[in-house]
């Protein structure tokens, strides 16, 4: 019986420790100066959540949770691979966080307006011109 008490106490302790490490990793996701830093932290978050699932499997006794953990690991792995491809294809455009994103958004919103205005051939699509411009102003 004492062994069971040790086990349940250590599961509680491990849950607390995992909570702390989860929050610390989230802090890195928020703070992380570059995109790859955030991706590393997100990958780590997947690992910690797998740990949570394993602990819940021990506490409740449903071993089906193992399959869920494996599926989550698969999804996390594929997500990290996709993020790596994204980092590679996006190139090294990185400024202070927020600034670049804002500049890109402004550019993306501003770009189509002169195009639709200056192209006289798109007469059937005249209705879209003001609508696009209105969206861009917002």
């Amino acid at each position: 019986m004492t062994a069971q008490m040790v086990l349940s106490f250590s599961i509680w302790l491990a849950l607390v420790v995992l909570c702390v490490s989860f929050l610390m990793t989230v802090w890195r996701v928020i703070k992380g100066p570059t995109l790859p830093d955030r991706v590393v932290a997100l990958d780590m978050l997947t690992g910690i959540v797998i740990g949570f699932i394993a602990l819940i499997a021990i506490r409740t006794g449903f071993t089906l949770y193992i399959d869920i953990a494996i599926s989550l690991g698969l999804v996390g792995f594929l997500a990290t691979v996709a993020f790596a491809r994204f980092v590679l294809s996006r190139g090294g455009r990185e400024g202070p966080p927020g600034e670049t994103a804002k500049a890109e958004m402004i550019k993306a919103l501003a770009a189509p307006v002169p195009e639709t205005r200056r192209s006289p051939r798109k007469k059937p699509a005249t209705g879209t011109g003001p609508a696009v411009r209105r969206k861009a102003k917002k």
Binding site: A3, L7, V17, L18, M24, R28
Partner: peptide
């Protein structure tokens, strides 16, 4: 009892490694 103690050890060391990884991050 032995299995429970082994499980407790594995759980604690796994959580400890996860905490070390988070601190390192």
């Amino acid at each position: 009892g032995f299995l429970a103690l082994l499980t407790a050890f594995l759980v604690l060391s796994g959580a400890g490694f996860a905490l070390a990884a988070a601190i390192g991050l």
